[in-house]
Simulated assay, not measured.
Amino acid sequence: MSDCVFCSIVAGTIPSVKVAEDETTLAFMDIDPGAEGHLLVIPKRHSADLLEIPADDLVATTLAAQRVAKAAIDGLEADGVNLLNCSGTAAWQTVLHFHLHVIPRYHDKVNRQDRLELPFEPGRPAEPDTLAQHARLIAAEIVR
């Protein structure tokens, strides 16, 4: 797709700082990192989001993200890692090409430029009836 920035990165028409590449996937540094060492892992073949990506590309991209995450933790001496996918604009997806954020995390937030915070307040459990209702609605769609 000529108007997709990530497809242009795959094609080499937009520069990137590549970290790893194979036949199916590409990992490169995020230009607006949430923490030191923040990377993106993408399938080379275009898919808009999690709902569109073929299973084989999803598996390859996830396994590549796992390899990159291990290397980031070891290479950067990170204390942990977040693996994040945003699917759809309501979920903060800004580039409509499936991608996984691999974000090394650090206890030292200041010196490691770790600026991510949870977008919700944990510790506010849902009502059991509401959980059961949502589970029924989702499960009914899976059966289809």
Results as ranks from 00 to 15, higher is better:
97 H>N: 06
78 A>F: 02
78 A>W: 00
97 H>A: 06
94 T>S: 15
130 T>A: 12
101 H>V: 07
108 D>H: 09
132 A>H: 08
123 G>C: 05
85 N>S: 09
125 P>G: 06
96 L>N: 15
125 P>W: 00
114 D>Q: 08
88 G>D: 06
76 L>W: 07
103 I>N: 02
77 E>N: 15
95 V>S: 03
79 D>H: 11
120 F>W: 15
87 S>A: 15
109 K>C: 05
105 R>E: 10
76 L>A: 08
78 A>N: 05
78 A>G: 07
87 S>F: 03
83 L>A: 06
124 R>K: 14
113 Q>F: 07
81 V>Y: 01
81 V>M: 08
93 Q>T: 04
120 F>R: 03
85 N>T: 13
80 G>D: 10
130 T>I: 08
112 R>Q: 13
117 E>G: 12
108 D>E: 12
114 D>K: 02
119 P>E: 04
87 S>K: 05
95 V>F: 09
94 T>A: 14
118 L>R: 14
98 F>H: 06
124 R>I: 03
115 R>Q: 09
131 L>S: 11
85 N>K: 00
112 R>T: 03
112 R>P: 01
78 A>T: 07
92 W>D: 13
74 D>E: 15
78 A>C: 12
118 L>D: 01
123 G>T: 07
120 F>V: 10
105 R>C: 05
80 G>F: 11
